[in-house]
Structures are given as structure tokens and as C-alpha cells.
Amino acid sequence: MKPNFTLLLLLFTTVSFSQGKTFLDFRNESTAIYPGCEDAENREDCYREKVGGLILKEINTSNTAKPLGVEEFSVKVTIYSKASGEAPFKAESDNERIKGLAVAALEKLPVITPNTDFSGNPISSTYGFYVKFKKNNSTKQYEQVTKSTTEEMKKKPHPFPMVIEHAHFKNCPAEDEFVTTCFKDKLSSWIKKEMGKDLNSLKGTKAKIKLAIDIQGNVSVKSIEADSVKLKAALEKVFIKFPKMEPAVVNGQISVMAYDMPLSF
């Protein structure tokens, strides 16, 4: 059985893979990922609205018990997304009651996926923004006031334009895309050779492998996620033997690069 691969390239830094991209791409690359925003067109807007939703719930619960007595207000939020996954925060408001409610809401923040560097290692970042609320006089409850920045950011160029030749198998041409026909053919042949008869029992399974390729072309596996224990064990066994590749070149300089490869069999 020949494995059928679906390959996806993830953006790991604020400066990587920026050819022909916009300021929206830049912001998506540099914004930590709030749960549920993984596939959002604008991760920054999604992040802000999700946090605003947490605060809104706390505000309306308190307002029902005892009216806040204000028509509209805003809260300044700063979240320090650490590489460890922790997310210390700060909430600011001129109204002490509202500030206290915002703090109570932010204490319920879920785990936020941090940004990563070229090698796929988590890094810390800070995200500050305002969330605005306005009272609905019909329901007597507050609503979050949102304004999308998507179209505006699409009009601006990426601030770090780059010329990139991605890492590639030897005997495959250097191109500005990682997942080329040559790459898929080489990878398919290599996995088929290394896994042999094991492939027959893995039909219908899926995995996601994070790889880092250093400036010498050495490939290291950062992590493997699989939907079966057997598949994960098989991939761990063969991927430690992943062949050496030609390293990536960014603006004429050999560079470390990290990639995310979902595989389906």
C-alpha cells in the first residue's frame, strides 16, 4: 500500500515564509494561539474576542445581581504568554468593580499555545489590547463591541519580505515551497521502504510530525502525535533514521527551519 500524504507547512516565526504575504500573515505568525483560533483567518481578532467573551460572561453575571450603572466601558488587557504555556495577565479599568470582574474572568484563561522560533521551540510573547462593552438597553445586558481589522491588515505588506529556498531532499530542486511533488515522492518512497509490511496494518491512521532541520541538513524530530499507539511507535522507530537534507536558505543565508507534517495512511 502506498501511503497517501497530506503535508502542511506551519509558520514558526515572525519573519519566516513571508514571500507575497501581508501584514495579516505577519500578525497571525506572531500571535500566540488561543484555543479555538487555530484556523481563524485573523488569529489576533479571534484571540481578543475570545478573551472579551470571558470577561463579558463575568460582567453580565455580576450585572444581573447588581447593575453596574454604566452604559459602556473598556478594559485594557495584557497577557504574557510564556514559553512554558503559562499566561500571567494584567487587567486595567478606571472602574474598580469592573477591573475586579475582569481579573476574575482572566483567572479562567485556558492554556494558550505560545509562539515558536525557527526550530519550533516555544518562545515567550506579550499581547496587549482593549476589549470594549456596551449595554443593550433592551436586554439590560452588556455586549462586546468588536471591529474586525482583517481587511485593513490585508492591504498592508508583510514587514519582513524574504527570499526563501526551503529545505529539500538531495536530488530535489531548491524551491520556495517545502511540499513539492519531488518531496512527496521521496518521502513516500522512504517511508514505504523503512516501514515495509507495517504499512498494511496502519491503513486509515493519521499522525502529525514536527521536524527541525539545522544548517548542516540534519533532521531532528521535535514531536510526534498519532491517533494510535502503534503508529506513533512505528514512526518514532523510523524517523530517527530520517535522511539528511539540503538545509533551507533565507535571503542567501543557510538557516535552521522547522516544519509540521500531518501524514495520513
Rank of each mutant, 00 (worst) to 15 (best):
120 G>K: 00
80 Y>V: 09
182 C>K: 07
38 E>G: 07
205 T>Q: 11
54 L>C: 13
203 K>R: 09
76 K>F: 10
135 K>A: 09
36 G>A: 13
77 V>N: 00
17 F>R: 12
51 V>A: 03
216 Q>P: 01
161 P>S: 06
81 S>T: 08
241 K>A: 02
184 K>R: 15
230 K>P: 10
39 D>W: 01
184 K>D: 15
222 K>C: 01
39 D>E: 06
11 L>F: 14
2 K>G: 06
247 P>T: 06
192 K>C: 14
258 A>M: 00
102 A>C: 06
5 F>C: 08
263 L>V: 15
231 L>Y: 10
192 K>L: 12
171 N>C: 11
218 N>I: 14
1 M>V: 10
172 C>G: 05
181 T>E: 09
176 D>A: 00
71 E>T: 03
68 L>C: 10
264 S>G: 13
31 T>L: 03
40 A>H: 05
65 A>Y: 12
174 A>R: 07
65 A>C: 12
16 S>N: 08
261 M>S: 02
219 V>I: 05
210 K>N: 15
28 N>K: 08
43 R>I: 15
73 F>W: 03
189 S>W: 03
36 G>V: 13
175 E>T: 09
63 N>M: 12
169 F>V: 03
235 L>P: 00
141 Q>I: 04
208 K>S: 05
187 L>H: 04
91 A>K: 02
96 E>F: 07
158 H>L: 07
140 K>A: 01
147 K>R: 06
184 K>N: 10
70 V>A: 01
91 A>N: 06
210 K>G: 12
219 V>D: 06
238 V>I: 10
137 N>Q: 08
7 L>A: 01
47 Y>T: 08
209 I>R: 02
132 K>V: 01
97 R>S: 01
202 L>V: 14
36 G>P: 13
109 L>C: 08
158 H>G: 02
55 I>Q: 11
66 K>P: 01
232 K>R: 02
221 V>P: 00
153 M>R: 11
253 Q>C: 05
14 T>H: 13
100 G>H: 13
126 T>E: 14
215 I>V: 14
25 D>T: 09
18 S>T: 15
260 D>R: 00
22 T>R: 00
143 E>C: 03
102 A>T: 15
229 V>E: 09
93 S>T: 12
47 Y>Q: 06
